[in-house]
Amino acid sequence: MKKRGELKLSDSSKGWLKRLKTGLRRSREKLTDQLFDIFLRTTIPGEKVWDDIEEVLIQADVGIKATLKIVQDLRERVEIERIQDPLQILGLLKEELIRILGDSKEPLLLANKLNVLIIVGVNGVGKTTAIAKIAHRAMKGGLKVLLAAADTFRAAAIEQLEIWGERVRAPVLKHQRGSDPAAVVYDSIHASQARGVNVLLIDTAGRLHTYVNLMEELKKIKRIAAREAPKSNIKTLLVIDATTGQNGIAQAKLFDEALKIDGIILTKLDGTAKGGIVVTIADELRIPINLIGVGERLEDLCEFNANEFVEALLSRDI
């Protein structure tokens, strides 16, 4: 439901699961329900069923701790309520995963305000591409966009953002390579205010969360944003690659400790990885997932939908 004062990035009338099934040029076979197979093979939920559920969750990168917890809870419930129907168990599992992931969240963008999205993450997760996709959707929705090239570290990162800027026709504010990223942020906020920009997207350098100095640099960026644009809607979004395993939890934890992460963009869901680590992240840190990347085209960015995500998580592909 569209609330008052909330801006949608664009209408995502088509679910991303549908996109995966129909839109992508990928050689994806039809998604069949892996757990469904399992449950068809059994009549009574015996030990094997629980092992199979465990296997499916772990193979989806949900992580051993969260998996054991989910299976344990489910087992208890099944025993207490004397559930016999395997499909009902499957339904309860989905329900539990959806509950953990949560669907309701604050709107990402607010109307009549400058929206500042600071995009952070480790190296190679797809920050710049995600920014281009967000910019593309925001511009299609008639919003005024500015991109800030605050990755002043990596070779050609600025050029990369500039090329994306040209493709989506959004202006890019940049300094030289090696300059202070906080200065880029400072300038970009003042430029946004002067030009009446709706959405300012800040591209930051990829960094491993274990480098304390580099995390300090991000804190500074956020401080400057808060100081220079106190009345704006500032959101710090962490980009996580769906291929990431259990390290994703460490990433989320340390980025959150340093910056207070408002939401997650889960990228590269068009491969064979399931991105199950976000279940653990949602469970342990209560960080909502906002957007997902499902392909290489500019249109391949969708709003997160827990129901569809869980369907895909429990399904078999290729």
Partner: peptide, 15 residues
């Protein structure tokens, strides 16, 4: 290969 890769490492390497 990224050292942070999860369970999918097997799929991608085999492919």
């Amino acid at each position: 290969v990224d050292a942070m890769t999860g369970q999918d490492a097997v799929n991608l390497a085999l492919a």
